[in-house]
């Protein structure tokens, strides 16, 4: 578990380091996700060495964003002023996204 955590945080740190030095407009953790995938593919890192930590983190992923959800209370009035346009835009966009994504696979799938 300790080794697995070291790998996960190591790749997170590497991602942050690269965005810090090269000032690329992508978050360090997203870069870390990409890099750990590549490292696993190239067999630089073994799956069994990272899996204990990654499984636990994914299992509780939803718990970790609760504080941001609670933070919405600070902006409640802002949202309340625009709830109609926000709902229309977000629902319409979600339905279109669902359909476009699905129809591509539906038509081309083998």
């Amino acid at each position: 578990m300790l080794k697995a955590l070291a790998y996960i945080f190591g790749f997170l740190l590497l991602g942050e380091l690269i965005t810090y030095f090269f000032k690329i407009p992508i978050a360090g953790n997203i870069l870390g996700m990409f890099l750990i995938f590549i490292a696993l593919r190239l067999k630089i890192v073994k799956l069994k060495d990272v899996k204990p930590a990654s499984d636990k983190l994914i299992k509780y992923l939803v718990l970790f964003f609760i504080p941001y959800g609670v933070g919405l209370m600070v902006y409640f009035e802002v949202i309340a002023d625009y709830w109609m346009p926000i709902s229309i835009a977000v629902i319409a966009s979600t339905v279109i996204t669902l359909y476009i994504s699905a129809i591509i696979i539906e038509k081309l799938e083998r």
């Binding site: 996960i8 696993l40 990654s54 983190l57 994914i58 509780y60 964003f65 609760i66």
Partner: peptide, 19 residues
Amino acid sequence: FISFFLGPSVVALGVFFYE
């Protein structure tokens, strides 16, 4: 302290993808 773990969780998604 709770939301801090979002960072490593995104890295963990890379492992999930590989699997």
